[in-house]
């Protein structure tokens, strides 16, 4: 690096993270983006868990309001989305731990792992909802 890069005084512009427009879309890149989106969705989705816990800690009438929402079509749709985001982010997180440990970074395997995240997220969601409908 040239020494002129580090002139004293005001900060020079720092590199910005989103470089979405300068690289063609790859599977690992797509799953990286979806990982962040599902993470942000879960951030909001935890409000649902908080609502459930607060309602259950209050009286039966308060719980019935939550129960009514979660059993409605919109409620089920939100819960289904939450389930998928949770499983996708879970598997994606395991994939990132494996990568951060230095494994699975080679060409065929890294794409297979990215595909496994996508397929595994949907598969686990469907299995858990199947179990959910079977047990209740």
């Amino acid at each position: 690096m040239a020494s002129s890069d580090a002139l004293p005084g005001p900060r020079r512009p720092r590199p910005l993270s989103p470089h979405l427009s300068v690289y063609r879309l790859t599977m690992t890149m797509a799953m990286s983006i979806v990982h962040r989106i599902t993470g942000a969705a879960l951030y909001v989705g935890v409000l649902l868990l908080a609502w459930f816990l607060i309602a259950a800690s209050a009286d039966a009438a308060t719980f019935a309001v939550f129960s009514g929402f979660i059993q409605s079509f919109i409620g089920r749709l939100v819960l289904f989305g939450f389930t998928w985001a949770l499983f996708h982010h879970l598997i994606g997180g395991i994939r990132h731990i494996v990568w951060d440990s230095g494994y699975g970074l080679d060409a065929p395997l890294r794409d297979q792992m990215a595909w496994a995240t996508l397929i595994g997220g949907f598969a686990l969601t469907i299995v858990v909802w199947g179990v959910g409908y079977a047990v209740r």
């Binding site: 935890v46 409000l47 868990l49 908080a50 816990l53 607060i54 259950a56 800690s57």
Partner: peptide, 15 residues
């Protein structure tokens, strides 16, 4: 959010 969830969980457990 953490405070609300922990409070609610403990309230269920102890009341």
């Amino acid at each position: 959010l953490a405070l609300a969830c922990v409070y609610a969980t403990l309230r269920i457990a102890f009341t």
